[in-house]
């Protein structure tokens, strides 16, 4: 019976990625990228292995961002990161946040992470869980440093750090 109690935790993680993907889609509506990046595909990069990639790919097949088709790029290594609007850093790559920062410095990328503390270490948005609900931390300084603008309706829902 102990096993049963662990099931929900297991399942919760599988579902969490779906919510994260939907929230990332929503973020794209509330963040303004420089005009130079407003044509072509809207690229969401995933660094490392994460179930979110499948969720994002599913979403990309039916959704658009500001009239742009969504393209999902998988980056197996930090050196591969290039040309994306949003970069999602998988948990397994989270420890390398400083390296990721260095690689993408100054680029108009919304850096999204999923590990406690990362919003203070360079991420623009970091997912956290509070009372069984998904919340997100927003570091406005990190957003502005990359030339992005965030709508107040997004920051009003965020945990500002």
């Amino acid at each position: 019976m102990l096993l049963l109690t662990m099931v929900s935790i297991q399942v919760a993680w599988a579902q969490k990625e779906k919510y994260h993907s939907i929230l990332i889609y929503n973020f794209s509506k509330y963040v303004k990228w420089p005009d130079a990046q407003s044509s072509g595909n809207f690229v969401i990069g995933v660094l490392g292995n994460s179930k979110i990639e499948k969720e994002l790919t599913d979403m990309a097949s039916s959704k658009q961002v500001n009239g742009m088709s969504i393209e999902i790029k998988h980056f197996a290594a930090i050196s591969q990161i290039s040309g994306c609007h949003i970069l999602y850093v998988s948990q397994e790559e989270s420890a390398k946040i400083d390296e990721i920062q260095a690689r993408t410095k100054g680029q108009a990328i919304l850096l999204v992470t999923d590990k406690p503390g990362l919003a203070k270490r360079g991420a623009a948005i970091n997912f956290v869980e509070v009372d069984g609900k998904i919340k997100f931390e927003l570091n406005q300084q990190n957003v502005e440093n990359r030339g992005l603008k965030v709508a107040s309706s997004l920051s009003s829902l965020a945990i500002l750090v």
């Binding site: 929900s8 599988a14 579902q15 869980e129 069984g132 609900k133 919340k135």
Partner: peptide, 15 residues
């Protein structure tokens, strides 16, 4: 979206 409880929602999943 921010008010959806992922734990209960996740229990309604494929697993």
């Amino acid at each position: 979206l921010m008010n959806i409880e992922i734990v209960s929602a996740s229990k309604k999943s494929e697993s």
